[in-house]
């Protein structure tokens, strides 16, 4: 991530506690784990969804089905971005029909990724309900979208960015607030 680090919003323990709470909230809100499935949004939503899967297994003794969603083909900015995004595989090895889908992503910002993820989900079938879980909500929504489960609300300015590091991808567990250069 470019820019200078202004502060560390969450450390490894903070991330662990937030995910533990979200895991409990998912179980509570869905009155158990019946028909609940986890869908991680590439890229960092995937390790987060895996961690939630492990926590729920620990708490309830149930291993929830886990899928991976790549939203590249559903982006709304193909004509304006200055590069061509690389497409990765979507891997949802179960039927989502009638399921309680928990979409998992790292940061909720404008809401456009969540919008794309919703469209991508709908093309895979007709879930009973879709809920959104994010590690960080940094505000600045451009669409009428909100998260059902939030690890931490972080007020930010537009000039700032939020960088989520997860040891599965980045060698460390932390969330940093960065100031963009220029």
């Amino acid at each position: 991530m470019e820019g200078i680090t202004k502060s560390r919003i969450m450390d490894a323990n903070g991330i662990r506690r937030a995910l533990t709470r979200i895991a409990h909230e998912i179980i509570e809100k869905n009155k158990g784990t019946l028909d609940v499935v986890l869908i991680g949004v590439r890229r960092r939503g995937v390790p987060l969804a895996e961690r939630l899967q492990n926590l729920i297994l620990e708490f309830e003794g149930v291993k929830l089905p886990l899928g991976i969603l790549d939203i590249t083909l559903y982006r709304d900015d193909f004509s304006t971005i200055g590069f061509q995004p690389v497409v990765h595989e979507t891997d949802v090895p179960f039927d989502v029909q009638g399921k309680q889908v928990i979409l998992v992503d790292d940061v909720l910002f404008t809401g456009r990724t969540a919008r794309a993820a919703l469209d991508a989900m709908m093309d895979l079938g007709r879930p009973q309900r879709i809920q959104l879980a994010v590690l960080v909500d940094r505000g600045h929504r451009e669409l009428p979208i909100r998260a059902d489960y939030v690890g931490k609300n972080v007020p930010t300015s537009r000039r700032e960015s939020v960088s989520v590091c997860l040891r599965e991808v980045d060698d460390s567990d932390e969330v940093l607030l960065m100031e963009k250069p220029g």
Partner: peptide, 10 residues
């Protein structure tokens, strides 16, 4: 087709 027609500015 995606590579040639999707995201063109580069």
């Amino acid at each position: 087709i995606y590579l040639l027609a999707g995201g063109t500015s580069n």
